[in-house]
Each structure stands twice: as C-alpha cells, then as structure tokens.
Nucleic acid binder design. Structure first.
Lengths: 253, 253
DNA sequence: TCTCTTTATAGTCTGAGTGACTATTAAGGA
DNA sequence: TCCTTAATAGTCACTCAGACTATAAAGAGA
C-alpha cells in the first residue's frame, strides 16, 4: 500500500503517527591509480565526530530520493553536470537505532565516476576526500555495512552489465577497462581472454577508428574505444572463483 | 550520512523539516496450478477505491522496515509462522506524488510462498485474495510498477540463486521445481537438460532416499527432493533469450 | 643502431557446459 | 495387451572460457 491502511492509525492525519526523517546516503566509487577509491566526508560533530562517513543529506519535501541523491552528488563532488553519471539505488537502511539522535530511514545510492573528478567537492561538506576502499577504518553510523553492500553490488553489476565503462573517461583503452574489473574485483585477469570477451559482446565497446594512445609511455600503443550502446552482458563475464569472497574480505571494519 | 548534516536545516530538531510517512509494500508471489499468483487486497476507500493494491502498512516507530514487512506478511497471509519464508527488500519508492494524500516513502519487499497458503488472510485487510499475475488490471498508486519490478527481480534471482525451492513445499519433485521456473519466466524448459543442470549443482537439492510420488496419477513416479544448503548457483541457470523480454510483456498495466 | 623490455594484439588447444535430441523405464487407462 | 503419459538415462555437437604461445610496435639503454 502507499499509505493509510493496514496498520495505519484510524482517521490518520499527517501527525497521527511518528514521523520519520528520510535521508539519502551515497557510496561514490572511482578507480584512481589502480585503486578503488570512495568519496567520504569527515564528521565535525557528535555523534561519530572525527570519523569518516558517506556523503548524503535529507530528502527535501518536494523531491524524490533519486533527485536528492543526484543533488547531493553534485554538491559533494563539485561537478557541475552529474546528469550523465551512473547513479543506482542500492537499498534502504531503517534499523531504529542506526542514528542515536532520532529515527532516520536512509535510502542508499551507488554512484560511479571516471577517474579525473576534482579531489574534493565545493559543497557544504567541510572536508570531502577520496580515500582508498581497502584499509578504511570503521566509518560512522552503519556506513561500513552500506559501503560493503555497495561494493558487492558494483562487483556483481560488472558481471552482468556493461557498467564498467561508467568508470572510464569517454575514450579509453581495453587495458584501462580491464583495470576497472581487476580493481573492483581485486583479481588479475588474463589479458587476451578479457579482450576476446569484451570484443565478442556486441555493443559493449566500439573502436574509435585510427585512434591510439601510448599507455605508460612504454609498449605498443593501444587502440581507443568508447562505450557502446549495450547495457546487458549476455553471457555474463563472471569473476573467477578466487574473487568471490573478496567482496567480504578487506572491507572496512 | 545518517542524519542531520549536509542539507539538513541548521540546529535541526525532529520537527525542523518535513516529516515523511514510511510504509512497506509487499509483492507476495506463489505458484498455484501452474500460474504465478500475487496476493492483493481490494481498496475500500478513496483514493483508488475498488482497485487492487499490494498489501502493506506503516512502519511502526520502534521497528525496522524488514520487521514491519514480516509482520504485515503474517497479518495478510494469515500464516502463524512466516519466519522461514523468503523475504527480500526490493527497492524504495519515493516519488513525491505517489500518494495523493500525503508524502509517503515506501520500502517494497518481495516474498515467496509455497503452494498451499490459505486462500486469503485473517488480518485487518478486508478482502485479501490471490490473483493471477497475468492479466491484472491497473493497480492502485504506483503498484503496477512495484509489482513489475518485483517480478523482474524474482525472475533474475532464479537465474543466479537456489531461490526456486522457496516456492516449493518441503518435499517436491524436479518436475515441480521446473514448473516454478517455467511459470515465473513464462517459458518452457527442456526436462532432461533442466534435470541435469539441477543435479549437477551441489547443494541445490538433495534426494530423499526411497521416496517417490505419483505425479498427476499418470506416468512413472517421480523421486522426491528437498531443498539443499546452497544459496548461489554457479554457473547460473540462465533463462532462454526468448524469455528475456517476458518480464516486461504481460505485466499489469 | 641494436638489442632488451614492455605492452598490445593475434591465435591455438582443451575441457566444461548447454541446447537439441533419442532411448528407456514405470506407471494408469482403454 | 496396447497405448499414453511422465520420469529418467544417454548422445552429439556447438559455444565459450581458461591457459597458453606467438607476434607487433613502442621506448630505454648500451
């Protein structure tokens, strides 16, 4: 139901039941220098003063959670245009005691950025920073759990969708695309096999004719590709069995 | 964040911002007589009076959305013990105008029941009924969308998990398990190939030694199985390409 | 300039897994 | 007794992924 039936108080009005605060939390990932990084802000006040937390904020009265998430994403990253970025609802966290101050229900979102976003945003967050996902200390609230869920979701999405290109700039090499997989999954993939699989999937990537880029200064120049129009990956690109538990290893806290 | 930072009003207190009503909506599926059926309640009052809607209700001040969903599931189905049933959070719907009366954020859940639940519940819902998923008219609120999302999620879950046994009673034949797949996906599967795949997956099902049941009175008796301990399905049991769009075909409204 | 290293790209071989089949077994009904 | 139905067993070919080897094209250093 949408409201006001079932266990609703009889003759309800908007104050006949306990109101909830509704917020959004953002797990924003990027791949920088071969490492998976997360956008975090440092809390300035209690509770959890000094601890890192996921960016986020209240859903305003006239906006959806999705709209709120995109607004917060723009504010925290400092990017002027976030309309093209990948933003996906993760799940909702509603444990009654997850915020010691009051009852807060939070809709978590996962966002993916290509490499060169500004180091930290110009929004209201005092100190937003990119931090490596591995080795994070315990975060504020239940954000360890949210971040771990987000990581697992992104890893699974790479298997069944063409989402990996969302981590890449408009033009990228297959080596860079492979590094996205390797970084998120925490494994090493065979380069010829990865190449064969990506090129065999229609619409995953399309080659930019005649373009090439020297990668690292050494070695043969790599052909450049851009993201294709396909979104699904059939058959999927399954991560090796050795990477199946990596989503629960090395996660914060 | 969990609350009270970012775009939160300065010096917030619990009434410094617009309160939201938080509800749960349930998409409860079962397979009865070879058809996919959904538990629905008929609305008795405006808005959408006379229309069918998903069961659900308010999240109480001291409970999580998951707890609320399980409580509602027990009330609406009339089952005394729902602790063993599959219940999974789907996603959250938060469009500002999804309920014309007030601002309601709803956390949707998907539940799966084996065949013989009571026809309708003894809870507060005046008229809860099982209705076939195919051919449903437009539902109340945005419940068409929620139900379609739930169907798609269940169909995808069958591919990668051992979830299909949640639709089956404690003892079942492989033919019954196959019918779960065929009913949810809306396709016909090859029986020997399905059998080979299920039996080749360790922990999916385990045979009950010596037990057999006549299925339909005709034909060779089928061996009985119970659900195994595995939860994941590696490699997945992908639905045929002909069933890929069936999640968007034939869905209500 | 001639190697050596590095990286991209091409190709081979094999085994696992699946789709499309055919064959056999065990029940009930005419 | 024969026919139908449904479960179960087995075959064959094709696809695909993993593990390789080989070649091409760049820079670095002697």
């Amino acid at each position: 139901m949408a409201a006001a039936e079932g266990t609703a108080p009889e003759g309800y009005d908007k104050h006949a039941f306990e109101p909830f605060a509704v917020t959004v939390d953002l797990a924003v990932f990027t791949v920088r220098a071969g490492a998976l990084q997360v956008l975090l802000i440092e809390r300035g006040q209690e509770p959890y003063a000094g601890r890192w937390a996921l960016p986020g904020g209240f859903v305003l009265p006239k906006e959806s959670a999705e709209t709120a998430a995109r607004r917060e994403l723009a504010e925290e990253t400092g990017l002027s245009d976030v309309s093209g970025l990948h933003l996906e609802q993760l799940r909702t966290y509603s444990e009654p005691d997850r915020d010691p101050r009051m009852r807060v229900v939070s809709v978590a979102y996962t966002a993916l950025l290509p490499d060169p976003p500004e180091p930290h945003g110009g929004g209201d967050a005092a100190s937003a920073r990119w931090l490596p996902y591995d080795g994070l200390g315990p975060l504020a609230f239940d954000h360890d759990r949210i971040l771990a869920d987000a990581h697992e979701r992104v890893g699974a999405r790479l298997e069944y969708t063409c989402l990996a290109t969302a981590f890449c700039p408009p033009e990228f090499t297959l080596g860079e695309l492979q590094q996205v997989y390797e970084t998120v999954w925490g494994t090493v993939l065979d380069r010829p096999n990865f190449r064969r699989k990506v090129l065999a999937t229609p619409g995953f990537v399309e080659q930019i004719p005649g373009a090439a880029r020297l990668t690292g200064g050494r070695g043969k120049p790599a052909a450049l590709y851009r993201a294709g129009t396909a979104t699904a990956l059939h058959p999927p690109l399954l991560r090796p069995a050795s990477a199946l538990s990596s989503s629960t290893e090395g996660r914060p806290s």
